[in-house]
Design a protein around this nucleic acid. Structure first.
Lengths: 227, 227
DNA sequence: GTGATTGATTGATCAGTATCAAATCCCTCT
DNA sequence: AGAGGGATTTGATACTGATCAATCAATCAC
């Protein structure tokens, strides 16, 4: 692990656009950024573990981080996958004091680390920061509620179709998207075993979805919407 | 539906102990409570519908409220069940402006209604209220993340066992609890069809769980923990 | 109390997905 | 460009839970 106070230009741009910081005025921004630490982590590195005392939360600047729980037998269940711009564990600020799940980089990643106590103090003073926190946590809540509904309402091929549609820029006609990460990560996000994701993709061939490596081609976006 | 500004003593007690209001000082409390409306609803009454503009959020004072999504074919998926003391839709304050799911009373219920815009204004001024909101939303987020992990890691009997354990006051020996609502509601909460809940209960008989009506008897709480 | 309505259980069947094993593909590294 | 190794796909099988139908139980209205 490599820690530094310096930000690359690209990472800085991601940070400034992150929902958590985007709406902030300059003074709040400076205060938050002066207390954060940047670190670059290799793939598969644990960022936090279930049960550890929660003394920091994070914002992903580059790469993807997987949040998951373990069963007693060691099976893993993904709870959410954080993309650049996403924060995680920030909702523990005013509730729990231990992490409730594990976080692991899915690939080499850069993270900004925020000390819980320091941000807690800032949030008490600065209503703008409190509001940014509310917005970030709310966004997460919307995402997790979506996830529950998706899991419970839709089959594997439908969930995959939903995911593809959510990343399709266009509304009709044909489209082509590129997965930003490995398929096994997508499988976890959708609550599927990798094999099930693979079969879901192949069952979508009959509605014009072609997959080659990380490239997904959609013949007719409209057709995909109808299941 | 019956609307009034008066609170019964019991409802007032629930409100004051609700996580959302519990930590607040007197002035914040008065300001919030002066703007809320109390209403008593019959069973099966919709409180909000997916897609409607979100101009209020609610706190359950009595009864239970079911939050759920509908699929295009009309199938329902419960996202969460709100008990007395729980708030719902409060996370839309600083994000969406339409409701993202339906809410329906599961039985006759009493709710406190808070106008979104009014609370938004209050939260901007009063850091204490902002903090209370963060706490309430965080609590929800923890709950929904738990729900995802539960759905993905455990089978029906295990989820039922977890639910029973979560309501068992004691740590060992035998225990007896009473469901506060219909079994079909519990089934929905756990992401199961009512038939599956029924079968899960009967499969738990071999570890000493007996069900009669709403009464659940557990022979050995420790034994239940091991699956 | 008695019929009627709603909720819960049980049985039979089926669809969907996990799991394990084997083969193949793709990406990265040199 | 080619080799190596992890990632993905495919096949076979088992299991879990949904669905439909029928029965049973409990509650309510009159």
């Amino acid at each position: 692990m490599n820690s530094s106070l310096k930000l690359s230009n690209r990472d800085r741009a991601v940070l400034m656009k992150a929902p958590f910081l985007a709406g902030l005025g300059n003074s709040a921004l400076v205060r938050l950024m002066s207390m954060m630490t940047i670190s670059t982590l290799p793939a598969r590195k644990f960022v936090m573990r279930e049960g550890e005392t929660a003394d920091a939360f994070y914002c992903v600047l580059n790469g993807y981080v997987r949040l998951f729980r373990l069963s007693r037998e060691g099976r893993e269940a993904d709870i959410m996958v954080c993309a650049p711009g996403d924060t995680f564990a920030e909702h523990l600020l005013f509730s729990e004091n231990v992490y409730l799940c594990n976080a692991q980089t899915a690939e080499p990643a850069t993270l900004a680390r925020f000390d819980m106590q320091a941000v807690r103090d800032l949030a008490q003073q600065d209503p703008e920061i409190a509001k940014a926190l509310i917005a970030a946590i709310s966004r997460h809540l919307v995402g997790t509620m979506d996830c529950i509904a998706n899991d419970r309402l839709f089959t594997a091929p439908q969930r995959v179709a939903n995911y593809i549609l959510s990343r399709c820029p266009v509304d009709g006609g044909s489209a082509s998207i590129r997965l930003p990460f490995q398929k096994s990560l997508l499988a976890g996000m959708l609550g599927l075993a990798p094999e099930a994701l693979s079969r879901a993709f192949s069952s979508l061939r009959r509605v014009g979805v072609t997959v080659r490596g990380r490239i997904i081609q959609v013949g007719d976006v409209q057709a995909l919407r109808n299941i």
